[in-house]
Design a protein around this nucleic acid. Structure first.
Length: 745
DNA sequence: TCATACCGGGG
DNA sequence: GTGTACGGTATGA
């Protein structure tokens, strides 16, 4: 194995895919100057062991030519200090599992024992060679092909493929069609031919793993068409990997990317999506094409029979959106795959902590020739305490400033050298140091105006991906059983120091005359006296920042004209540019009835601008609209999706609004159908576009509106609140509106 | 109140 | 068997 920088990759350029087998053969596809070539490489399958008890006497040899060899690495008793290598990885596993069964009296998988550490074959090859994907390549140089199936049903047992749309990032596109059942085999064969001919490095779609591939596999089997989609000269081309409920596929020579998975991960970070559907994600990124055709899933086949051209356009727009969305969601994974010894599809699918950091740490030990520390056992006892969250004041504040510590946890890790106690090499803290330095280099390159935009974009993607990786370092320490190097005491120490830092900042701001509003983990919202001005705010932040320990930097993160503080992590901000930002589930519940959320957001804007007359008038208008049935009903309905069949629902014994509405309407349904429901006097009803409607339950919707108004209660004195939102009738005896003002912080 | 089961998304 | 998703919500003890 290569020695040297413990995590920098071997600069072996151009790898776009690797397929390795337990026989020790690895096919490496490289793209060099646009041309693809395939090389056959060899590696010696390996694993790490803490002892040799499970190997039969005499089988292991220190002679590197022997079928089964071991090598002792430097490290203490209990660490994984034996590097075992074999000519064949499957023989090695089988031999070892027999030995384990003999010793423990039961069959166990290697992964269940912390005496051993083994990774997949591709990762074995990559770690051993020090190579990684994509050295010297930019994302646009990859050949990415999008593939989308249109089918007559969701279940391949009940329906078939009638159309497939394909495209690639170069602008090529194709539509394959099977108008009749007898045409499906030809469609699938044509699809396989097209993939082989375009020869992509990556195949992608939205819900590729959950829909298109399982459907394609099932239909190809039914039609007896071989699914030779891979690049490997070998037969087995599409492999099914099941873990829990989730099924994934893997293909030799091509990476399979699912934009749905990437969407989940993005939503976890930015929480800004109305749903995870392709259409909504494309709209979010602003890449939905002009004249986009929107069809209900269940209508697509019927539409195809009456208007095939419309469905062709629809399907091509799908693959076009996937290409655009994938480009935006996968640049981080692409950047990380250049660093970590893993396939792109694994990097994209796994989280950064166990997915990237851990392989980097393990590789650091291997390349240093040192024993891997024993796996930390996760202690019981008190749960891990996280960051501090404090609500100091609720109500309306003006001249609000947000200050936060730049990269609080990584900074603490570095300045206090906090890492896993088992980490004898100090690889963890060293990695955070080196990643930080590397990120700064990429950040600087990304800002160089003399570089072409494309190169700057690559540097920007790298620095953003490295930032994520650095930020996951703390989470990794607290990951418990999942993480080989987990160390709860170290994680606890980081959060404890973080809480102390936050307290110190709050105390410093308060002493300097600021009024605290809310503090959360690494940042604090506060408001300042009117005379301070922007320069004064900046001076205040840097003054408080100077009192922090070495290595911690306090920054001014935002300035706002006004803020409504409701609860911890639930607030609205009005920028100096007039833009309203609403945060927190209580104020922006996603599945709620549209009219209520829309009203609340309008009301928050009015509140923060001090337009109380508008606030009251808007509330009365909303009530009036409900009474007079002036609202479009689609703003009142709850849209949801049924997942159980009628018999499954009956068997479940639960009562759920959507099914009650379907049963009430005597409508049959299938799992997957979308329904829109609303509340009538008689209970939940089905809403059908243009259908005849019984009246909705006015009391229910007035109550709902009122419950939203309640979220503004903390902005007013109770009497004033009643004055504005009271019964909804004309104001009675209270103060005139002009004398009311919100409760100021 | 806490634990667990299920869901998303795809036609 | 080319390995560990994940947070929200509904339901039941």
């Amino acid at each position: 194995m290569r020695a040297g920088d413990p995590w920098l990759a071997d600069p072996y350029p151009g790898i776009v895919s690797v397929w390795a087998e337990p026989s020790g053969r690895a096919w490496v596809w490289r793209r060099l100057e646009g041309r693809l070539r395939c090389e056959l490489a060899h590696f010696r399958p390996w694993l790490l062991a803490s002892h040799l008890q499970d190997f039969p006497q005499g089988e292991l040899s220190a002679d590197p030519e022997a079928p089964l060899t071991y090598q002792e690495l430097g490290g203490p008793e209990g660490s994984l200090r034996y590097l075992i290598q074999a000519r064949d990885g499957l023989d090695l596993s089988a031999l070892l599992e027999r030995g384990i069964a003999r010793r423990l009296g039961r069959r166990l998988r290697l992964g269940q024992l912390s005496d051993y550490y083994q990774v997949g074959w591709v990762e074995q090859y990559l770690m051993q060679s020090g190579r990684t994907y994509y050295q010297g390549l930019t994302f646009p140089e990859l050949r990415r092909l999008q593939l989308d199936l249109e089918t007559t049903a969701l279940d391949p047992g009940q329906g078939r493929i009638f159309l497939a749309a394909l495209s690639d990032a170069s602008g090529w596109q194709a539509v394959l069609e099977a108008p009749g059942e007898e045409d499906e085999a030809a469609l699938i064969a044509g699809l396989v031919r097209a993939v082989q001919q375009r020869d992509p490095d990556i195949i992608e779609n939205h819900n590729l793993m959950g829909f298109d591939l399982p459907f394609l596999v099932a239909r190809a089997a039914r039609c007896r068409v071989p699914l030779a989609l891979g690049r490997s000269p070998r037969a087995k081309l599409l492999q099914r990997i099941q873990s829990g409920r989730k099924v994934r596929y893997s293909l030799a020579g091509r990476e399979l990317l699912d934009t749905l998975d990437a969407t989940y991960r993005m939503d976890f970070v930015v929480r800004a999506l109305p749903s995870h559907s392709l259409k909504d994600v494309a709209r979010f990124f602003g890449v939905a094409p002009a004249g986009r055709v929107y069809l209900e899933g269940a209508q697509v086949h019927a539409t195809y029979r009456s208007d095939p051209e419309l469905v062709r356009r629809y399907a091509l727009q799908d693959v076009l959106e996937v290409e655009q969305v994938s480009k935006r969601l996968h640049t981080g994974a692409f950047a990380l795959a250049k660093m970590a010894p893993r396939r792109l599809e694994r990097v994209a699918y796994a989280g950064t902590a166990t997915g990237i950091l851990e392989p980097l740490l393990v590789r650091a030990y291997l390349q240093a020739g040192k024993a891997l520390p024993a796996k930390a056992s996760s202690p019981g006892g008190l749960p891990h305490a996280g960051g501090a969250v404090t609500l100091f004041a609720s109500g309306v504040a003006e001249r609000v400033v947000k200050a936060d510590v730049a990269s609080l946890y990584p900074s603490l890790i570095r300045s206090r050298r906090l890492g896993p106690s088992s980490d004898r090499l100090g690889a963890f803290v060293g990695l955070v140091d080196q990643l930080t330095a590397l990120r700064l280099r990429h950040k600087a390159q990304a800002q160089r105006q003399d570089l072409p935009a494309e190169q700057r974009g690559e540097h920007e993607a790298m620095q953003a991906a490295i930032k994520l990786l650095i930020n996951s370092a703390y989470g990794y320490l607290g990951a418990g059983e999942l993480a080989w190097f987990a160390d709860r005491a170290a994680a606890d120490m980081i959060t404890k120091l973080g809480r102390e830092t936050l307290e110190q900042i709050c105390a410093g701001l308060q002493a300097a005359g600021a009024t605290l509003i809310e503090a959360d983990t690494d940042g604090v919202y506060f408001c300042v006296p009117a005379e301070l001005g922007e320069a004064g705010e900046r001076a205040l932040v840097s003054q408080v920042g100077r009192s922090l320990p070495e290595g911690l930097q306090l920054e001014l993160d935002g300035r706002y004209a006004a803020m409504y503080s409701y609860e911890v992590k639930n607030y609205a901000l009005l920028g100096y540019d007039g833009r309203l930002t609403v945060r927190g589930g209580a104020l922006r519940s996603a599945r709620a009835e549209r009219f209520a959320v829309a009203w609340l957001h309008r009301a928050l804007g009015q509140l923060l601008r001090g337009d109380l007359a508008g606030l009251q008038e808007g509330y009365l208008r909303a009530r009036r609209a409900l009474r007079e049935k002036a609202l479009p009903l689609e703003d009142l309905v709850l849209r949801t999706r049924v997942t159980k069949s009628p018999s499954e629902y009956t068997a479940s014994g639960r009562k759920e609004a959507a099914y009650q509405a379907l049963l009430g309407a005597a409508r049959s349904w299938q799992p997957g159908d979308r329904v829109a429901i609303y509340r009538s006097q008689a209970g939940w009803q089905l809403w059908e576009e243009g259908g005849e409607l019984p009246g909705y339950d006015l009391g229910h919707y007035l109550g709902l509106l009122r419950s939203y108004a309640e979220r503004l209660r903390k902005a007013f004195h109770p009497d004033d609140f009643e004055q504005i939102f009271g019964s909804g009738q004309a104001p009675l005896l209270g103060r005139p509106l002009s004398e009311i003002s919100p409760l100021r912080i």
